[in-house]
Structure formats: C-alpha cells, structure tokens
Amino acid sequence: MLLYVTVGTNDLERAGRFYDAVLPLIGYRRQKQADGEIGYAADGDVRCRFWVVEPFNRKPATFGNGATVAFDAPSRAAVDAFHAAAIANGGTDEGAPGIRPFHPHFYAAFVRDLDGNKLSAVCERPE
C-alpha cells in the first residue's frame, strides 16, 4: 500500500485552487498547508495521502511521462463531476468518463492538472 503521492507545481496557490475545486467531488479535501506544500486526505482518513508540492530542489516542476495518479471515486457520477470540474478549472481532457477495458466495471476519466500532471478518477463498482 502506498503511504502518499506527491505531484509538483510551479504555482502552489493556483494549484491549490484547482485541487480545492476538483478533489472534494470524489471525497478528498485539503487538510494541511505549509510552506511549499498542500496535503489532501480522503474523508475519514487521518493522514494526507496526496500532496501538491513545490520541488524541494527549487528547480521547475515537471510531470512524469507515463505517470498517472488514480483516485478511488465513490460513484460514476463522482467520476463525471471530477472530470467536468477539472476541465472547468483549467485542466485538460485526457479521456472522457467511461468504461475502460481493464474489467467490466472500470469506469474512469483522465485529466491533466495545470502543471501537466496526469490524474484519473476511477469507480470500480457497478452502477
């Protein structure tokens, strides 16, 4: 099990606005903020599992080619809302909500945040 995941940003305030608008739709909320970082946790979790950070080495943040952060979404409607909010808040579409070929109930949407980090919301429950 993963302890946490970080994505880099070149503008923490702007990234915070993006994630504050998008993540609550799938059950994650800002829980902590300190110099250079914002932490998000799922409802009911006592630990931030997703962090948006300014790189420690002070070099520009870049996205990982082939890297995707996938969030567990509570419903297909939440996946749809996540995708719509990401696009409305400046993100870019990387795959509209829909069933993927991984298994019959793998319903996902893919977006890129304002720094180019690839994100996905996934519901694996039938609806």
Rank of each mutant, 00 (worst) to 15 (best):
L2Q: 12
A84W: 07
F56T: 15
E37I: 12
K32H: 13
Y40N: 01
N57W: 10
D113M: 02
G36C: 02
G95S: 01
V5E: 10
D72L: 15
S75W: 09
P55Y: 03
F71P: 13
Y40K: 02
P104V: 04
A121D: 04
E94D: 15
R17F: 12
G16E: 06
D72S: 15
V46K: 13
R112M: 08
P101K: 11
N57R: 04
R125K: 12
H103E: 11
G64V: 10
G91P: 04
I99M: 13
V46S: 15
G16F: 08
K118G: 00
K59T: 15
R125V: 14
F82G: 09
A85Y: 05
D11W: 09
S120F: 04
T92M: 11
I99A: 12
V52H: 02
N89A: 05
V52A: 02
G44N: 04
L23H: 06
A108Q: 04
V122E: 05
E37N: 13
R49L: 07
A70L: 07
Y19M: 00
G64D: 07
D45M: 10
G90Y: 07
A67L: 13
A121S: 07
E124V: 03
L2A: 13
R30L: 10
N10D: 13
V53L: 09
I99L: 14
N89I: 09
R49K: 14
T62A: 14
H83E: 05
A84Y: 03
A108G: 04
H105K: 07
P74V: 09
A81F: 08
A77F: 00
E13P: 00
E94I: 01
K32W: 09
I99V: 11
F71R: 06
G98W: 00
A108F: 00
K59L: 15
Y4K: 10
F82V: 03
F110E: 03
V7W: 03
V53P: 05
G44H: 01
L119T: 06
Y28I: 03
F50M: 03
A78R: 03
S120P: 12
Y40V: 04
P60F: 02
P97W: 02
R58A: 14
P126W: 04
N65M: 13
V5C: 13
A41L: 07
